[in-house]
Nucleic acid binder design. Structure first.
Length: 788
DNA sequence: ATGTGTTAATGCC
DNA sequence: TAATGGCATTAACACAT
């Protein structure tokens, strides 16, 4: 009730001031104190205004405002009773957390100062006195402190930076160089903590607890470092971040050849580390020392550049530090969360703690738990052993692309790159997600989960191309006008599943039911799983796979029932005593026939489609609501569709993402829902797939087989691979079947044949990529400890 | 209730 | 001249069991 005005201000004044929170200068981070914010913001705004980027930001801003509005409504519904209960829960958790508070570890966060810019300045002294930034006219990675005085920042487009600072020098990125320097720095890190955790090229967490223990007993000689002769020109030394930056060591500024003895405290150890970094690279670093990672991170920012800060390991000191700390400074609290909290009158961590009961009622469990941790000054106290990654992706931005063939080609390239990355880490995942951003900066993603985990270009592309096709078709005959495409694989099968599972299937099939023989070779999965096992160090019993549901069991069931006869995956007919060639040609005929008949094969599929078409037309322009019209209660509010199909009208220019609404409504409705309900039709055809594949196994080990679905010859050296291939083909066939009733004939043909085979797709072409390499502090993949 | 798949949103550097 | 990144995770929802 007392915060009513927060709701009002956030919902009403959306156009002007609110927008600033997205577009305007973000002076949260270091080096931006005391500059003319208003003037800078005005320039940024004027330069951005009217651009498609800006328009999209505006839209996103409105969405955040709506979200806040909803939150405030919910807040208004909270009763005293609820608060009381919430408070009790919060208190209880607080107690537990407090009890388990750990202050004994010495966690350090080290952060190189303006890293890329500093490297460039070091290597090109002419730049030292000039405002400069690393990146391109389209996007800057980082800027030096001169430039920051003008409001030039990382993640700002170069052309806007130029407006702010016409004399700005923009240097292209040179990642190899940064990597090399980073490696040097990491060498030093590893001497203090061999298990240090790199977060990017220029940043890492260290746990100095062990080091401190040993250091206590070290003689001075082990804590003495000499200033290196070659670099003792002070001017050369620190690449002028700030002339008056707090110097790390008074004795440094004196004569050459001076030795510096560092003490045994944590501060001294970190000072020593920073000193050595500077000696070795001529670059400065800042550091934070605290009892946990969250605090260390904040601390490293406090005395940037070329400084450090320590929170002593006492509860009192921690709470004192936390008290006035703006929540935005905490890693994980971004501009949206900041704004939402601000709407509740929460700006610093003290206020955060005060409002925990309320927050527990307004935010998800994980969110408010996180808030509680922050407000208590708690954070992770151990370098988590490589928490396993959950997804891997690759994406690219490019100049406007409307040509479908080009898009498929790019998609394949992405799949190629992703496959390489996946295989490098020995990962295989079951869900393939396609991400698209159109020229209006609208982002959408589409996912498809296949039956077997995939990791090769072909497998990934097989899924991705269909996702892409659906999107292309959905706006046809207009082209998709894209500026970004990405492919992601997630749903990784766990390391302990990977190898045994596949072996067991093979063992079963090849030995006619006995899965005891696991020695069957399975080239690909063997190598990959070996890798992942070694990295994840999972000590699980290899036999536990037997009970894994959902993957193994169906295969067993099916294989037992069909080993004696072949079942056509298209017409479902059982065929006894036929040879393989005959069987294949039968399938070919069936496929042709079904394409001409325009008759989906699975009976489920037919019902599904009718069912869908009988649904009332969707009412909202949001594709999201197309599929959820009847179930989502929140949808009702938007539902007075009769009058508010607002944004749709402007799609006449062929804009990509929302067009389907009128022109292809039924089709889209059908398609979308089909994809969603896929689990139903899929379960059946995928059984068919297994049947086919398994039967083929039984008859034809070691042959070159024609995939009954895509007609591509497939090696059967690795039967598991062949099985997966057929399954995937079938899965996609199911997905595509539903388009047969509408699209141009050649499309359905392509769908049935599979793009690989006779598709009109050109081989991969090189595409003009606007901006990949120079992104903001992009760090190389697999950037883990082992990597140093 | 719980789990799984899909998509949008968020945040990091 | 025109021009605003790449990556991962989580929140939120729908749906199935």
């Amino acid at each position: 009730m007392e915060n009513r005005q927060g709701a009002v201000s956030s919902s009403c004044s959306s156009s002007g001031a609110d927008l600033l929170s997205r577009i305007a200068l973000n002076d949260n981070k270091a080096g931006m104190e005391g500059l003319d914010r208003d003037k800078i913001n005005k320039i940024i705004l004027e330069t951005s205004k009217g651009s498609r980027f800006y328009e999209n930001e505006l839209k996103k801003e409105q969405q955040v405002n709506q979200r806040i509005e909803k939150m405030m409504e919910q807040k208004a519904r909270i009763t005293k009773e609820m608060m009381k209960q919430a408070q009790a829960e919060v208190d209880k958790l607080t107690c537990e957390l407090e009890r388990s508070r750990e202050l004994g570890r010495v966690i350090v966060h080290v952060d190189m100062d303006a890293f890329y810019a500093a490297v460039e300045m070091r290597d090109c002294p002419e730049l030292k006195d000039k405002p400069m930034a690393v990146g391109s006219m389209s996007m800057l990675s980082t800027s030096n402190y001169h430039a920051r005085r003008f409001g030039v920042r990382a993640a700002m487009p170069g052309f806007i930076a130029k407006k702010l600072c016409p004399n700005l020098v923009i240097v292209p990125t040179n990642f190899d160089k940064y990597r090399a320097v980073s490696a040097q720095v990491r060498e030093i890190f590893s001497e203090y903590d061999p298990h240090f955790m790199p977060m990017s090229l220029d940043e890492a967490y260290l746990d100095l607890t062990e080091h401190m223990e040993q250091r206590k007993h070290w003689p001075e000689t082990m804590r003495t470092y000499y200033i290196c002769d070659a670099k003792t020109e002070k001017d050369e030394l620190s690449p002028v971040l700030f002339e008056d930056s707090p110097s790390s060591s008074p004795s440094l500024s004196g004569a050459d050849r001076k030795a510096e003895v560092f003490g045994t405290s944590a501060e001294e150890a970190v000072r020593e580390m920073r000193f050595r970094i500077q000696q070795k690279t001529s670059l400065t670093a800042s550091a934070g020392i605290a009892p946990n990672m969250m605090l260390a991170k904040v601390c490293s920012d406090k005395n940037k550049p070329n400084g450090q800060y320590r929170i002593p390991p006492e509860r009192q000191a921690v709470m004192e530090f936390i008290k006035d700390l703006p929540v935005r400074k905490v890693s994980g609290v971004g501009k949206v969360t900041e704004k939402m909290l601000a709407a509740l009158g929460i700006v610093n961590c003290d206020q955060l703690g005060q409002q925990m009961a309320l927050l527990s009622l307004l935010f998800s469990g994980t969110s408010w738990h996180n808030f509680l941790h922050i407000s208590l000054g708690l954070g992770s106290t151990c370098m988590e052993r490589d928490s396993e990654r959950k997804s891997m992706s690759t994406e690219r931005t490019f100049g406007e692309m409307s040509d479908a063939e080009e898009q498929y080609s790019l998609c394949r390239d992405l799949c190629h790159d992703l496959a390489q990355d996946l295989q490098r880490e020995g990962l295989k995942g079951k869900t393939v997600t396609l991400k698209l951003k159109n020229v209006k900066f609208e982002v959408k993603s589409r996912a498809f989960t296949v039956q077997y985990a995939v990791c090769t270009e072909e497998e990934i592309f097989a899924a991705a191309k269909d996702l892409l096709k659906v999107e292309i078709d959905s706006v046809s005959p207009q082209p998709l006008k894209l500026r970004l495409m990405g492919v992601r694989v997630s749903g990784f099968i766990s390391a302990e599943d990977k190898k045994p599972l596949q072996r067991s299937i093979m063992g079963f099939l090849q030995k006619g039911g006995s899965d005891s023989d696991l020695s069957t070779t399975n080239t690909q999965s063997d190598t990959t799983s070996a890798k992942s096992l070694s990295t994840t160090n999972s000590g699980k019993d290899a036999t536990s796979y037997i009970n894994k549901p959902g993957v193994l069991k169906p295969s067993f069931k099916i294989s037992t029932q069909v080993l004696q006869c072949l079942i056509c995956p298209v017409c479902n007919k059982e065929m006894k005593d036929v040879n393989l060639t005959a069987f294949n040609s039968h399938i070919d005929e069936c496929l042709k026939g079904s394409a001409m008949d325009n008759e989906p094969t699975g009976s489920d599929a037919v019902e599904e489609q009718e069912d869908l078409n009988s649904k009332p037309p969707a009412s909202s322009s949001e594709s999201k609501t197309l599929k959820s019209s009847s179930h989502d209660p929140s949808c009702n509010e938007e539902k007075p569709s009769t009058s508010i199909s607002v944004p749709v009208e402007e799609t006449d220019d062929g804009s990509d993402f929302k067009t389907p609404f009128f022109s292809h409504r039924t089709k889209i409705n059908g398609k979308r829902t089909v994809i969603h309900k896929k689990k139903i039709p899929l379960s059946e055809p995928s059984s068919k797939a297994s049947q086919t594949a398994n039967s083929l196994d039984a008859v034809s080990k070691g042959l070159l087989l024609t995939c009954p679905v895509c007609s591509q010859p497939q090696s059967t050296d690795d039967l598991a691979l062949f099985n997966r291939h057929v399954d995937m083909c079938l899965n996609q066939e199911v997905l595509l079947e539903f388009r047969e009733s509408h699209p141009p004939v050649d499309h359905s043909d392509l769908a049935l044949k599979g793009v690989r085979g006779s598709s009109p797709l050109p081989p991969s072409k090189k595409i003009k990529v606007l901006s990949t390499k120079h992104t903001i502090d992009k760090f190389f993949k697999g950037n883990t400890r082992q990597n140093i």
